[in-house]
């Protein structure tokens, strides 16, 4: 007879698994450490930072630095306080995301669910915009906005950014993946195009809309070149657009305000990062399924 009792399996140390973890931890630190350095510096008095730079201890200056960052302006007009820039950033991020999603869904709905004579033409007109990012047509776009008198306005900031088809493309792909029978069933159930859109398609796309919103919000929030050109009034600065001025302040003034600068950088980072972390699953889904 064979002995069926066995010695409990020895817990072997798998070196390859350890190595995997070591690499991942190293990668995570590579990502995280710079932020920790910046954070440490926001807790220190400026004089100490100027002398010693980042250190391995936390100071007690976070509160005063926060006040300076949020309520004190650095420019000539005194209007670019942290709160003002934060507000502008939210308007840009949300306005951009909502605009893109609304226009994108409408256009995609028209392209996918209607028999339209010039559908192919409209398709090409819209999707050609995917070919050229704003950066390569930045100067003529600036001129157009200037001619329309939209400099230093949220309209001038947001609308030209919406002039590309990423969201339309994304929703078109998604609508095409919805089984055709659904629209057929709805038609037999007596739903017209408007009803079908509101009763069926929008609720069905909830996850996709959320995913798109996260991606577009982050994208809008992080815009730099366009706001740099369009908004020259300091009260129109977003946090990201203001970052250059913040760094230039570090050069010019008598006592560089590192606490304020670092904290503003952190505030510029925080909202999009938190959204991406908390809505990770939607975000990853939206990102990898849109492919663009």
């Amino acid at each position: 007879m064979t002995d069926i009792t066995q010695a409990p399996p020895r817990r072997r140390i798998r070196w390859s698994v350890l190595l995997d973890h070591a690499i991942l931890i190293f990668g995570s630190l590579f990502m995280l450490l710079p932020l920790l350095v910046v954070f440490q510096m926001t807790t220190m008095p400026d004089v100490e930072v100027i002398k010693n730079g980042p250190q391995l201890k936390l100071g007690g200056e976070l509160g005063p630095n926060f006040d300076k960052a949020m309520y004190k302006a650095s420019g000539f007009s005194g209007l670019n306080t942290g709160t003002r820039m934060l507000y502008n950033s939210f308007v840009l991020g949300i306005g951009f995301a909502v605009g893109k999603i609304v226009l994108g869904m409408m256009a995609a709905y028209a392209l996918v669910y209607f028999r339209l004579r010039f559908a192919t033409l409209a398709f090409w007109l819209i999707f050609t915009t995917l070919l050229l990012p704003l950066e390569v047509r930045i100067l003529p776009s600036y001129e157009v906005v200037q001619k329309m008198g939209m400099l230093n306005s949220f309209n001038g900031l947001i609308i030209p950014l919406i002039a590309s088809a990423t969201a339309t493309f994304f929703f078109r792909q998604y609508f095409r993946s919805i089984p055709e029978e659904l629209v057929e069933a709805a038609r037999i159930d007596g739903a017209g195009p408007v009803k079908f859109f509101i009763d069926i398609l929008v609720p069905l796309s909830k996850t996709m809309i959320a995913a798109m919103f996260i991606i577009m919000f982050v994208f809008g929030w992080n815009q730099y070149l366009w706001p740099t050109m369009i908004t020259t009034d300091e009260d129109m600065y977003t946090l990201v657009r203001g970052i250059k001025q913040i760094t230039q302040d570090l050069e010019g003034t008598n006592i560089p305000e590192y606490g304020r600068a670092n904290l503003l950088a952190l505030i510029a980072i925080l909202p999009p990062v938190l959204i991406v972390i908390f809505f990770q699953n939607w975000f990853v889904k939206g990102l990898t399924e849109s492919d663009k």
Binding site: P179, E181, L182, E184, A185, A186, I188, D199, I200, P203, L204, K206
Partner: peptide
Amino acid sequence: AMVFQNYALYPH
């Protein structure tokens, strides 16, 4: 009234 192969129920 029509019954579809994949039923075409409204998922939401």
